[in-house]
Design a protein around this nucleic acid. Structure first.
Lengths: 350, 350
DNA sequence: GTGAAAGCGCTAACAG
DNA sequence: CTGTTAGCGCTTTCAC
């Protein structure tokens, strides 16, 4: 088994002879110690079944001895697969997105991929910048939030020919595949619930993401169609919070709103309204009724418990991962639109 | 400017002639179109000041034309710098960690690095597995939560000789640098506050992370030293939540606790206790007083507003990023321990 | 089952 | 200012 070492090997040899610990150890080093070539080490790691048991043992021993850590950067370059999935969410501090991501990551990691997570801050501009930057890492797939992106962003993704999954919303024209639910349907469903429940006064509070505004618009239009009079709206810039919720109720009351139901774009906002109502000694749902959105963990725990719209975020994460994995394994995107629906959960706040 | 194309170039040429859009375009392609060599394209991108204005223009034009996207995988391999920072947090859905990360990421990105975020689920084992996997990506730096890690984990990090910053806690013996505050001091400070406020009955509720338990233990021991009798404790497995908080109060009351103050390991738990007290018609802070931990956004918004321990998570994230950047730029870790302290914020719940 | 050769796309000296 | 040369550490044929 005469081994011919190239100049490169020579260099590696002297370096590793000097210090054989962790950093600087390559497959070459491991191979030399195990008495095999570098390629065989690569095989032992990637296709252990194609290496004899004895060789495998020697290699594992050498790896242990040297503290060898594979270099995925080199592997990625050579194989043209990074095993990296880029994921973009509007905000990582918003639990609504992070639970989805959590589920997504678990499923994706199980398949041997790592997730490169970034937040767009609800900005399409920022989203595009991130996509550009991330594509430089040559991710094997991209996860996007929502179906509204800048045309530059769409073009970049299409040009990169990278499997792309859009979550949280559905559209007839996804970049690749989308998994979500219809925000239009959701707004209408809440309006119908409000009508059936016999509320005559209604108001809406929405934090400024596009999907929330769409729900609110449909909610309003549906009620107007059914003869409701003006429906006061509060639109919040930035992220939703309990504080915003409290302030919104204060504002609505100030504007003369009373004895009605308020549809919020998130449970957090609804919770804030509940707290403000409590602070003002208003009884819920008799004087002020509240409907949230999302059915977060705490929704069943507030007092009174929150009536809200449940979106199964875990399911969303899982389905998104499934869709991604399907695309990653080369399956064509036959089903380009996956609707996971939503449910109105009636508790005690409305 | 006679250009000699190697076999490799030949191949690239034919490929790109066939389809000049986005994927498959390399610096070689761009260079050929701009009439310069591949290296010059590299320079134009990395050191534009070392390239003539005219050449730069031609290259930019070629980049636009081809939709060239740099390949950072190749750049990383060649330069031995990935511009990737690995960050490990116990949970991404816990806002306490995500706000810190948010700040950290902003500062780190501004310096041209990307963050590879993973969650350990509060498990040292999982942490080690992640560190192993992540080191394969050759991150330029690693951010860890807490200062307690498995010895394997420590060894791997030390062996990889990668700048490491530990946040949320401090110790005399960090892997590299640590940024945080003393949980021991915090537990003692709350105990002192409770004594000074004249509460005679106290209890503690903690979710099961090691730091929370440490705070609770010191809180209890300090009070015992000062003649307090037994202090009921509730230890929760898993993540803290409003639900856990509600259940904890129910359990404490069930065990005979009344007319005293409860120290919680998180604001979420405290909020749950507030809600449960409300549901039971117990007045806060007269019948049940509550102290939280963290001073999250909603702490000032609960009713009554929560007395809690403020930890400046944004500062933590910023300082962690600063420390990381300092190490990244090769500065020695002269100050290995950075204490950002904490404050007790007295509101109305205790 | 194992090895040699040829890159992956880029950066890092070193010339000129 | 620009080009040549030599890798970075690994995977991928293709032989044997």
């Amino acid at each position: 088994m005469g081994r011919v070492l190239s100049k490169r090997n020579e260099k590696t040899r002297s370096a590793s002879t000097a210090q054989e610990s962790g950093a600087g150890v390559t497959m070459e080093t491991v191979g030399r110690i195990a008495g095999v070539s570098q390629v065989t080490v690569s095989r032992a790691l990637n296709h252990p079944d194609k290496v004899s048991a004895e060789t495998l043992r020697k290699i594992q021993e050498a790896i242990r001895l040297t503290g060898y850590v594979p270099n995925l950067t080199a592997a990625s370059l050579a194989s043209r697969r990074t095993r990296l999935i880029a994921a973009l969410v509007p905000s990582i501090t918003n639990i609504v997105y992070s639970t989805l991501i959590q589920r997504f990551v678990v499923a994706i990691r199980a398949a041997g991929y790592q997730v490169l997570l970034s937040e767009t801050g609800f900005s399409q501009d920022e989203e595009y910048k991130l996509v550009s930057a991330l594509l430089s890492r040559r991710p094997d797939g991209v996860l996007l939030t929502g179906v509204h992106h800048s045309s530059d962003c769409r073009r970049a993704l299409l040009g990169a020919q990278v499997p792309t999954v859009e979550v949280w919303d559905i559209t007839e024209t996804p970049i690749d595949v989308c998994v979500g639910f219809s925000h239009t349907d959701a707004g209408r469903a809440v309006a119908d619930f409000v009508r059936r429940s016999g509320y005559m006064n209604t108001a809406a509070v929405a934090a400024g993401d596009e999907r929330a505004l769409r729900r609110m618009a449909v909610f309003r239009d549906t009620l107007l169609e059914h003869g409701y009079k003006t429906i006061p709206e509060v639109r919040l810039a930035g992220a939703a919070s309990i504080k915003c919720g409290r302030e919104s109720l204060a504002q609505l009351i100030n504007d003369g709103f009373h004895d009605g139901v308020i549809f919020c774009s998130s449970d957090l906002l609804a919770h804030g309204i509940l707290i403000e109502a409590q602070a003002r000694g208003l009884s819920v749902p008799d004087e002020i009724a509240v409907i949230g959105f999302g059915d977060q963990d705490f929704a069943a725990q507030t007092f009174p418990a929150l009536t809200t719209v449940r979106v199964d975020r875990e399911k969303l994460g899982q389905y998104a991962a499934d869709a991604m994995l399907r695309r990653l394994s080369g399956e064509p995107a036959d089903q380009r639109q996956i609707d996971i629906g939503f449910d109105i959960i009636v508790r005690n706040s409305a």
